[in-house]
Simulated assay, not measured.
Amino acid sequence: MPQPTSSPRELALSGLPDAELIISAPGRVNLLGEHVDYNMGVVLPAAIDKRLWLAVKPIEEPVLQVTSLDLNEQVNIALKDVVTRVDEKGNPLPQWSLYPAAVAWVMLSKGYSIQGMQAVIASDLPMRAGLSSSAAIEVAFALAFQTIGGIEMNRMQLAQLCQLAENRYIGVQCGLMDQFAVSHGVARHALFFDTRSLEWQPIPLPADTVLVIADSGRTRELAHSAYNQRQQECQLAVQYIHRKNSNVHSLRDVTKQELAGFLDLLPEVVARRTHHVVDEIDRVERSALALVEDDAAAFGAFMLEGHASLRDLYDVSCDELDYLVEAASNHIGCLGARLTGAGFGGCTINLVQKQHAQDFCEKLQTAYQERFLVELKTYICHADRGAFVERMRKAVL
């Protein structure tokens, strides 16, 4: 039996000792650029060293036999039945298993030939916390299908395929940022990513800093939250503005200088959503320059501005996240803080000087426990590499 201290990689392999592949996919934080990827904006995420591990063995039967060690659940999904969202016994698929099913469905719908497999998942990446555990599962299974089937596809195409799976099968109208960050991460770097042109550039994070994630413990389901509603409000804004300026096809096309002339055209709530998106895109561009100039203090200030906008204009924060950001910003070692992910619960991301990180975590945990009577989980993280595949070497007797 594996020991409790076994790593997720070791646990996945212990659950499938004859695995032919071991695949790892990271979580991601978004440092700036929230809710702008579906508006064709620029974003600044980073992959993190909290990862999902997937042990894989191809099988002849056209079935996905998937085990989640973290949840102690196992499901068998016939490939011919993925569209029905039921297992081999006709039971509705558990929520977590919809993501590998979604990837299988989208690959089959695009005409790719995919093979059945046994797969075991283990992870130290918190689920339903705004750290893109869903994108990590999607990318990991897409790499498994690609590697086993010898499918030619570059990483951007793979990320786009996973985004389509989430849009069409899961029902979350997300942009490309999460799948991009999970598949393209660069150690010690943030990723400046233009979601319209698909151009991207890694930018070093400030020296002697770490990324501290604080998990509020308040979970949310994106598909059943106001996430899709925000996306629809942005589409409505584009429709209003397009009537006045036919060159506007997304909120990316509206500059800060033009914004004031359009706000009076919009319903009050839609105007606030638009204000956030336009400001946030500009904020990402300025914050990327701050990183290039190694101005950590300016970058941290942009993070705090971004949180205020998400709270006041986009209405995706909550009491727990607001408290965490305020408490963090009063700590001597914290350069910046904001919610990360879609909001409605989940985590904050904090840029903290390395020498203060442990003290920062302890004080934030104590304050949160006193305020909400809930244990706060914190993780000291670093920007990490994107998803990768290892082929297991078998001993020759």
Score class of each variant (00 low, 15 high):
Glu10Lys: 12
Leu32Phe: 01
Ile48Lys: 03
Ala290Met: 10
Asp70Pro: 02
Pro26Asp: 10
Gly41Ser: 08
Ile121Leu: 15
Asp319Arg: 06
Leu263Thr: 07
Ala119Asn: 03
Ser225Phe: 02
Ile203Thr: 10
Glu370Arg: 08
Ile241Glu: 00
Lys244Tyr: 13
Val86Asp: 00
Asp208Lys: 15
Ser134Gly: 08
Ala144Arg: 07
Leu64Thr: 01
Gln365Thr: 08
Ser183Lys: 01
Gln201Phe: 09
Gln173Gly: 10
Asn330Pro: 00
Gly341Tyr: 11
Leu259Cys: 01
Ala140Val: 13
Ala181Leu: 02
Gly90Glu: 05
Thr255Gln: 02
Asp282Phe: 06
Gln74Glu: 05
Gln235Glu: 08
Ala46Tyr: 05
Arg371Ile: 02
Ile59His: 07
Ile332Cys: 04
Val186Met: 13
Gln201His: 09
Gly185Gln: 06
Gln65Pro: 01
Leu44Thr: 02
Ala298Thr: 13
Gly217Lys: 01
Thr348Cys: 08
Glu221Ile: 04
Val269Ala: 09
Leu324Thr: 02
Arg28Gln: 12
Ala19Gln: 09
Thr366Phe: 04
Ser97Arg: 10
Leu335Ala: 00
Gly130Met: 03
Val43Ser: 04
Gln231Arg: 15
Gln235Ala: 02
Tyr227Gln: 05
Ser134Leu: 11
Gln163Leu: 04
Leu263His: 05
Gly111Ile: 05
Gly345Phe: 00
His224Met: 06
Thr67Ser: 11
Ser133Ile: 01
Ser6Phe: 12
Ala122Phe: 08
Gly346Gln: 03
Gln201Ala: 06
Ala101Arg: 02
Ser246Cys: 03
Gly27Leu: 13
Glu233Cys: 04
Gln95Ile: 10
Asp295Phe: 07
Leu64Gly: 00
Gly386Glu: 12
Pro45Tyr: 08
Glu34Arg: 10
Ser97Asn: 09
Leu351His: 07
Asp253Pro: 00
Ile137Met: 14
Ile121Val: 15
Cys381Glu: 06
Ala55Lys: 05
